[in-house]
C-alpha cells in the first residue's frame, strides 16, 4: 500500500483536495507529521514509546511555515523519504531563489539585497519609488513601498522590531499592479493552472517562463508569480506552498490531480513497502476519518 505524507500544519481546502485526488488514484495519504510526535533523526529506530514512527514513502510539502517544512523535509531525507516540493524555493529563501534565477539568466526585476535599514533606503533612492520589500523568508508577504514615508517607516520597523533577520531583505524595483500579475502553477515541469485578475489572456511566453523558473529551481510543485512589464514578463516572486483553491486549470487535470499524478510517477518504481509489514503503520482507514490531526496516524 503506497503511503503519502502530506506535510502541513492543518488540513485546509488544498490539502483535503489533494488527499481526495490521491485517494482517487488509489494512494493512501495522511497528514504528516503526526501531532506532537517527535521525529526520528536518521535511520528508523523504535521510539521511546516502543512504537515505530509511521514513515511514509513520499512526503508532499504543503507546510505554510517554511522553517518547520525545511526541518521536516531534512529529517525525511535522512530517513530516505523523498519529498515532492518546490526545490530551491522549499529548502531556501528568496535570496536563494533570486540567485538561482539570475544564474540562469531568467528575467527578473532590478533587485538589491539589503542588510540594514540604511541599505534599504539607499536601494530605494537608487531604484526610485514605488518599490517592494521582499523579506527573505518566503512565508512573509512582500510589502509595497508606494512613497518615501512608507519606505522609511517599513524599513525602520523591520530593522528595529525584526532585528537582523527583519533587516535582511530584497528590495525590488516597482510594485506591479494586480491586473498585471499572473500566478502560474507548475507541476512536474508543466504549467498546469493559473490565477490572475488580468483581463486579457496569458501568452505562451509567460507559461514557458514559469516552466523555466520551476526547472531552474528544481521544483516539483511551485507557483510562479509573473509580472507583465512593458519590457516583457519578469519573475516577480515564487510561492513554494501555494493556495490553489481559485486556480483555473490549463490542462485536463486540476492542480490536486496533477500533484497526485506526480506522486504516482514517483511511486511507480517502488515495488514493495520499505518497512517490514509488522512495523508498517495502519494507514488504511485514515482518509475516511476527516483530516483532524489527532485522528490521523496510529502505528
Amino acid at each position: 500500500m503506497a503511503t503519502v505524507g502530506v506535510l502541513c500544519a492543518r488540513g485546509r481546502v488544498e490539502e483535503k483536495a489533494l488527499m481526495a485526488a490521491l485517494a482517487e488514484a488509489g494512494i493512501v495519504s495522511a497528514l504528516f507529521p503526526p501531532t506532537d510526535e517527535p521525529l526520528p533523526v536518521g535511520p528508523l529506530f523504535p521510539m521511546a514509546s516502543g512504537r515505530s514512527f509511521p514513515v511514509p514513502q513520499i512526503v508532499v510539502d504543503r507546510h505554510p511555515d517554511r522553517q518547520i517544512a525545511r526541518a521536516v523535509l531534512a529529517t525525511c531525507r535522512a530517513l530516505d523519504v523523498p519529498g515532492l516540493c518546490a526545490g530551491i524555493a522549499a529548502a531556501g529563501d528568496r535570496l536563494d531563489v533570486a540567485s538561482a534565477l539570475a544564474a540562469k539568466g531568467l528575467p527578473r526585476p532590478e533587485t538589491a539585497l539589503c542588510t540594514s535599514e540604511n541599505a534599504g533606503l539607499a536601494a530605494v533612492a537608487a531604484m526610485g519609488l514605488p518599490a517592494t520589500v521582499l523579506p527573505l523568508d518566503l512565508k512573509s508577504q512582500p510589502i509595497d513601498l508606494p512613497d518615501i514615508d512608507t519606505a522609511e517607516a517599513v524599513l525602520e520597523h523591520r530593522s528595529v522590531l525584526g532585528g537582523s533577520e527583519g533587516s535582511l531583505g530584497l528590495v525590488q524595483a516597482g510594485t506591479p499592479p494586480p491586473e498585471n500579475v499572473v500566478t502560474i502553477f507548475v507541476i512536474d515541469g508543466v504549467a498546469t493552472a493559473l490565477e490572475t485578475s488580468m483581463a486579457m489572456g496569458v501568452s505562451v511566453e509567460v507559461l514557458r517562463l514559469a516552466e523555466q523558473t520551476a526547472r531552474a529551481l528544481f521544483a516539483d510543485v511551485i507557483a510562479v508569480v509573473i509580472a507583465l512589464t512593458p519590457s516583457g514578463p519578469i519573475v516577480w516572486d515564487v510561492r513554494p506552498v501555494p493556495e490553489f483553491r481559485h486556480a483555473q486549470a490549463l490542462t485536463e487535470l486540476s492542480v490536486p490531480q496533477a500533484i497526485a499524478q506526480a506522486v504516482q510517477h514517483r511511486l511507480e518504481p517502488v515495488s514493495a513497502p520499505r518497512l517490514p509489514s509488522d512495523s508498517t503503520p495502519d494507514w488504511t482507514n485514515l482518509v475516511t476519518q476527516g483530516t483532524r490531526r489527532d485522528l490521523v496516524i496510529s502505528a
Binding site: 508577504q141 508606494p146 514615508d149 512608507t150 522609511e152 517607516a153 517599513v154 525602520e156 520597523h157 522590531l161
Partner: peptide, 28 residues
C-alpha cells in the same frame, strides 16, 4: 523619534501596521 510613521493612505497604513503586528511585541 523611533518608529514614527507618516501614513499617506489606507494601503500605506496597512503596510506599516502589518509590520508592527508581525514583528513587534504586543505593545506594538
Amino acid at each position: 523619534g523611533r518608529l514614527l510613521a507618516r501614513v499617506n493612505g489606507p494601503e500605506q497604513a496597512r503596510s506599516i501596521l502589518e509590520q508592527k503586528k508581525e514583528l513587534g511585541s504586543f505593545h506594538h
